[in-house]
Design a binder for these strands. Structure first.
Lengths: 206, 206
DNA sequence: GATATCTTGTCACTAAGTGACCCGATCATG
DNA sequence: CATGATCGGGTCACTTAGTGACAAGATATC
């Protein structure tokens, strides 16, 4: 099965699962229900996900893939601040994917549902690994380097906190405006990463 | 049930569970086996733990409680570096608890067992919350402050990476000596936290 | 010593997740 | 076009993690 198709199918399942989790709670949602909602047999669900909670993972991941891919395309001669600002504003004209709202809802649910919280943490564990190669690459350090791993962990952690914060704010609907200004968001993310890495990750490389 | 007794019981269960996980793998260890090993009924196990994997949590936690409690007792007028160095050397004369080795083994297992990795991440999620109040308190910031949460997240993340690194090194037995020098360990931890918080957390407060 | 509370054991039960086998589609090869 | 190999998915039986309900023993309080 092509990686593409598999990923799309997982995302499709994830959307339905996340919707059900949000509407009726995690405990009240069975694997059978998820399967019925997406039109597959229950057995097939377990072929693609380890547990019913982990069905939420692709949707959660979807909330940060753009940021991660932006990090990956970060050119060496630019500062992270500039890069994120230009790219985020460029992208922001496109319609924001519906999944993002779902992802925020899952993060919200993760506050009270331990099983979902583990999924959320595992997703950011994945982000941390990606950060590891991105940062290691940028700093010209060997792959398993301890310093690089700490930078990546700290960076992923602050992004996670920021993500949760923004998600909570958007969901409550209180302060929606400050997060529609993409350059401001870019600056906050870039600043957080730079701070969390002691200033090592964020600037341009001569 | 007193908090003390409950914690001790959980730890006792956790020790047996961790031992079994290490000896025969997580999948091959059943709740019944854990119960039998500790001399309780299976039902009682589920009264104290949500899942069999989470039985490993207290042992994992035990690996960082000393550091967390040291952070909590960190006086404002001292630098983290000094405080950790003096306290760690003072403590290092006491026999190192046997649980630490078990904790390292669990972290090792977490590399290949996703279910255990979630437990490990959840344990550090707890550490992050503790860090949150410690750091928020030290910086005289309100409880839910975003900056404080990011500092706490970054600090917990680097400690986690350091812990995994040290654990792996000790388990392979390759370089045991560099981690018996407690002042060196203290310096590394303190330096990592200071870096991850952009230099904000680590120094003495006038 | 009587009683209320609290923890555990027993047992029946639900549901998450797996293994084994089959079926239809797709695709390569003759 | 025929054929067979591979692959994704369905069906069904089965294991086991985890829960609810109730009984029983321990413990504390008066």
């Amino acid at each position: 099965m092509s990686e593409q198709r598999r990923a799309r199918l997982r995302l499709e399942i994830s959307r339905e699962a996340a919707r059900l989790f949000w509407e009726q709670g995690v405990a009240a949602t069975s694997g059978d229900q998820i399967a019925a909602a997406v039109g597959l047999s229950t057995r097939t669900i377990w072929r693609h996900f380890r547990s019913k909670e982990s069905c939420a993972e692709p949707v959660i991941m979807q909330g940060v893939v753009t940021l991660v891919s932006l990090m990956r395309s970060w050119p060496r001669h630019k500062s992270l601040d500039d890069h994120l600002a230009t790219e985020l504003t460029r992208i922001s004209h496109e319609p924001p994917p519906v999944d993002n709202l779902l992802a925020m809802k899952m993060i919200r649910l993760a506050d009270t549902e331990p099983a979902l919280r583990t999924v959320w943490l595992m997703a950011y564990d994945q982000v941390e690994r990606e950060m590891c190669v991105i940062i290691g690459d940028r700093l010209d350090r060997p792959a398993g380097d301890l310093e690089g791993r700490m930078y990546a962990a700290a960076a992923a952690a602050v992004v996670r906190v920021l993500d949760a914060h923004i998600g909570a704010a958007v969901l409550t609907g209180a302060e929606l405006t400050p997060f529609t200004d993409m350059t401001a968001v870019a600056r906050r993310i870039a600043h957080a990463i730079r701070t969390a890495t002691g200033g090592v990750v964020g600037g341009p490389i001569a």
